[in-house]
Amino acid sequence: MKHKVEILPSAWEDLKGIEDYYTVQFDVETALKVSDHILDAIERLENFPDSGSLTPDNWLNEREYRMVICKKHVVIYKTIETSVYVYHIADTQTEYTKLFY
C-alpha cells in the first residue's frame, strides 16, 4: 500500500538551506545532485515507510519519529496512519535532534 508523503514547510526550509550551502560552497549542479538524492530517499518512503531506523534520541523515539540517512544528511519523519510527514532534513554532523525542542 502506497503512503502519501508530505514534506512539511520546516523540511522544505531545511532543504533550501542545504541547497544554498552547496551552491555557495560548490556549484548549482552539486546542490541539485544533493537535493535530488535527499528527495529520492523521501520518495522511497511512499512504498517503504518503515524502512527508516530509530533516531539517537529517546524523546523522538517515544513519539515514533524515525530517520533515513542520505549520505551526509538525515531525514526525520513520522508515519501517521497512511501518511508520512517529513519534519526536518539536517546534516548528520549537527545536533539535529534539538530541532524538536
Rank of each mutant, 00 (worst) to 15 (best):
M1K: 10
M1D: 03
K2F: 14
K2Q: 14
H3E: 11
H3S: 13
K4P: 08
K4N: 12
V5I: 11
V5K: 06
E6C: 11
E6R: 13
I7R: 08
L8F: 05
L8W: 07
P9T: 12
P9Y: 13
D14M: 07
K16R: 15
K16C: 11
K16M: 12
K16V: 13
K16E: 15
I18A: 00
D20E: 14
Y21M: 01
Y21C: 00
Y21W: 03
Y22W: 06
Y22I: 00
Y22A: 00
T23P: 05
V24A: 08
V24S: 10
V24C: 06
V24N: 11
Q25C: 08
F26P: 02
F26D: 01
V28R: 09
T30P: 10
L32Y: 09
L32A: 12
K33H: 07
K33R: 13
V34Y: 03
D36C: 08
D36A: 11
I38H: 04
D40C: 04
D40E: 11
D40M: 10
I42L: 01
I42T: 00
F48V: 06
P49G: 05
P49A: 01
D50M: 02
S51P: 08
G52V: 04
G52R: 06
L54K: 14
T55E: 00
T55I: 04
D57G: 09
N58K: 09
N58E: 14
N58V: 11
L60Y: 03
N61A: 04
R66Q: 07
R66K: 09
R66L: 01
M67L: 07
V68A: 07
V68Q: 06
I69G: 03
I69S: 09
C70D: 14
C70H: 05
K72M: 10
H73L: 07
V75T: 01
V75L: 06
V75I: 11
I76G: 06
Y77G: 01
T82F: 09
T82V: 13
S83M: 13
Y85V: 02
Y85R: 09
V86G: 00
V86I: 11
Y87V: 01
Y87K: 02
I89W: 07
I89A: 02
A90P: 00
D91K: 06
T94G: 10
T94K: 13
T97Y: 14
K98L: 15
K98S: 15
L99W: 10
Y101F: 14
Y101R: 15
Y101I: 14
